[in-house]
Simulated assay, not measured.
Amino acid sequence: MKLFLGLSLFLSITFFKAQEHISSFNAVTLTYKFHPKFFLYAEGQLRGNEEYSYPDYYEAKGGLGYYLTKNHKPFVGIGRYVNYKNHSLSREELRVWLQDVIDVKKGIVKFENRFRAEKSWFYEPKTDKSSQRMRYRYRLNISVPLNAKEVKKGTVFANAYDEIFLVSPMKPTFARNRVYGGFGYQIDDYFGIATGYLWQREFEAAGNKNLHFVYLALNINIDGTNHPVKTYDYPGAD
């Protein structure tokens, strides 16, 4: 635990000094396995894009997943996403998505391949404008426990990922790239925490933009199946 907190503090201070502007990315996730093959997932996010301490974006989402195999998990989800500009609501979004997650393990290293297709409906109250979007995402997330052979109570782990975003009908098609690196700590059978640095590159016709986030998350895993062997998902900023 001391190692995790020390690394987290060092990471945060380093990037606060290195970047002109730091944004906040805070999340709480809940995974509830209610059947050997099915699980529910819910997540809430609060971000400060323009100011670290002032939230100007939030999202609430959830869905149903299915264990096709131990390492193959299709999922369907729905969520609400809200943006604020100058302390007033600027855009609302309703999003539904289908995703497929395929895990590959090599020793203690886990490679998570996530494919997602999203359909979004937007509304901008200031201009009374509505629009739609299709977006396609792929993420490769690499995770490894640092003080054990697998994640369990007391395990410190590291994970890093790269994710690309493709959109339609907007331009440019290659709309976003995310790169994340961080650490996590599994406190007990239910609670885990994670922190790291997330770099987000926005590709826009009017000009590209970089965002630098400090990521903080509380992850809750509940296994209601009474299975003797518990499994833990490595978190990653979504």
Rank of each mutant, 00 (worst) to 15 (best):
F122D: 02
E124V: 05
E124T: 10
P125A: 06
P125H: 05
K126A: 14
K126W: 04
K126D: 10
T127D: 11
T127I: 10
T127N: 10
T127A: 12
T127V: 13
D128S: 12
D128E: 12
S131N: 13
Q132E: 14
Q132K: 14
R133L: 15
R133S: 12
R133E: 15
M134F: 15
M134T: 06
R135K: 14
R135N: 10
R135E: 15
R137D: 11
R139L: 14
R139E: 09
L140W: 05
L140T: 09
N141G: 04
N141T: 06
N141L: 14
N141Q: 12
V144Y: 09
V144I: 14
V144G: 04
P145E: 05
P145C: 05
L146F: 05
N147F: 02
K149Q: 13
K149I: 06
E150W: 02
E150P: 01
E150K: 12
V151I: 13
V151E: 01
V151Y: 00
V151W: 00
K152V: 04
K152Q: 11
K153C: 02
K153Y: 00
G154Y: 04
T155S: 07
T155Y: 00
V156T: 11
F157D: 02
F157A: 11
F157T: 06
A158Q: 10
A158H: 11
A158E: 09
A158D: 04
N159E: 07
A160N: 13
A160Q: 12
A160M: 14
Y161M: 10
Y161A: 10
Y161V: 07
D162M: 11
I164C: 11
I164M: 15
I164E: 07
L166T: 09
S168M: 03
P169L: 03
P169D: 02
P169E: 03
M170K: 14
K171R: 13
K171F: 06
K171S: 12
P172K: 02
T173W: 08
F174V: 10
F174N: 07
F174Y: 15
F174W: 14
A175N: 13
R176C: 05
R176L: 12
R176P: 02
N177Y: 03
N177T: 04
R178A: 08
V179G: 07
G181N: 09
G181E: 08
G181W: 04
G182C: 02
F183D: 00
F183L: 11
G184I: 03
Y185G: 07
Y185D: 06
Q186R: 04
Q186I: 01
D188W: 00
D189M: 00
D189I: 00
G192V: 03
G192K: 03
G192D: 03
I193C: 08
I193P: 03
